[in-house]
Design a protein around this nucleic acid. Structure first.
Lengths: 133, 133
DNA sequence: GTAAGTGCAAAATGTTTGCATTTCT
DNA sequence: AGAAATGCAAACATTTTGCACTTAC
């Protein structure tokens, strides 16, 4: 099945590429609607599904039901992030912790397709600000 | 606000306590329906919300929208899970990969409050079923 | 007795699907 | 021209809400 490079698709990709953080369907929709006022949300769903199938984007779950999508190219070195609950700044991890247990998982006959890590807490500078108060 | 120990609540808690893996709303519903045929799903939603507020259960997201709930008491040893994209069965990890990098994170002055891991893929038996076809 | 919780139905959300039409190639 | 994608509306699925009734305390 051949993928066609429609203007809707181009817009969606360009929005995801420009984003420095994972975006939800609604955020993508809001970002695109001014340029393509007639775009249907189903078009975004279908494109997102396709981009995921093509392994061009990754899914990120944060708090609740909403799923956020990140263009993989923007996460080349396979970085994971820790997020400060207060200032929402992200800090990257020096390595992928999953790597450590990959062999075990493989040995169990499980093939990893995807993985995600969320670490939240309080960063150094927010903790410091607390002390000052 | 006082929490009442209704039979619905007791059943939900007992199902979660008996479960060795995180369960979805539908799984809880299916497990309970034979004993309480008139229970409404909204009752389960409301109880789950309450249990979460009370910090008795934790939420686990895997790849798609469904959220799975695990009784905290059952996860004392701090287990993480991997889930098969196909059969949705969960398998537990032998150790917490975050532990490995905890020292690094602490050294950076970051205090971890919470963390989550999602690993998805295809399990041994689903892969085997593919081969047979 | 009273506040909290339940069941039910309806509403609100979020996602998917069918189909006629349009757009890429 | 033909396959793939779109927009729209309707279908589906999931979660939340309003309300009269029931239950735990």
């Amino acid at each position: 099945m051949q993928v066609k490079n429609t203007k809707q698709r181009k817009h969606i990709i360009s929005i995801l590429k420009d984003a420095s953080r994972p975006m939800s369907i609604n955020e993508i929709y809001d970002a695109i609607i001014s340029e393509l006022p007639r775009i249907a949300k189903s078009t975004i769903y279908r494109n997102i599904d396709q981009l995921f199938e093509q392994d061009l984007i990754e899914k990120h779950h944060f708090n609740d039901n909403e799923i956020f999508y990140l263009y993989k190219e923007n996460n080349d070195e396979h970085t994971h992030f820790i997020i400060c609950d207060e200032c929402k700044r992200t800090y990257s991890l020096p390595s992928c912790p999953i790597h450590e247990i990959e062999d075990y998982i493989k040995a169990e006959g499980f093939t990893i397709k995807n993985h995600q890590i969320q670490i939240t807490g309080i960063c150094k500078s927010c903790a410091y600000n607390h002390l000052k108060k």
